[in-house]
Amino acid sequence: MGIISRGFGGRRREPQPGLPPGQYLTHDFPVLSAGPTPRIPLDKWNFSIVTETGEKHSWNWAEFTALPAEEFTVDIHCVTKWSKFGTTWKGVALDTLFEDVESAADYTMAHSYGGYTTNVPLDDLLDGKAWVVYEFDGEPLHPEHGGPARLIVPHLYFWKSAKWVNGLQMLNDDEPGFWETGGYHMYGDPWREQRYQGD
């Protein structure tokens, strides 16, 4: 062992650049699930954006994977306190998906196969801040990690990066999703430690 681990023995860790308050670094990729893992055949897969007026923009798997894709590397932060640096994904930027969407709504609810939901303001999805990804580390995204496709919003706690995502509903008012209803924070900024309602 070449490195003496700081903070061993319960002493408070020194702040590490890139690590939000209260988080520790992991090299694993823990799997957290609130239910059974849905298995979605690619020929049944669909992703849609539905505006507040009910206008629907929809992509099947072939259409979706034909869109311009980006490969990017980001740090991710789970509310259960692990962070993982330098994760590499490939997918479609939300900016691309919203190109032809006319909407005046400021909020969205992400919906997933299996019934999971999470709310994210529209501003947090645009300007290169979020993607719908279908590859992790150069491989097709495994169902346990949210495949065929999941949302990635790396600047918010990872529960906002909905696994098995299949759509976004535009909303005029912010509404709580699955964990937000259960006591978690409406916004979830790891740098402000917005873990729970009232934080």
């Binding site: 259960t80 964990w179 259960g182 006591g183």
Partner: peptide, 8 residues
């Protein structure tokens, strides 16, 4: 379902 951010 357990090691989620809560019990479900």
């Amino acid at each position: 379902w357990q090691p989620a951010p809560g019990l479900v």
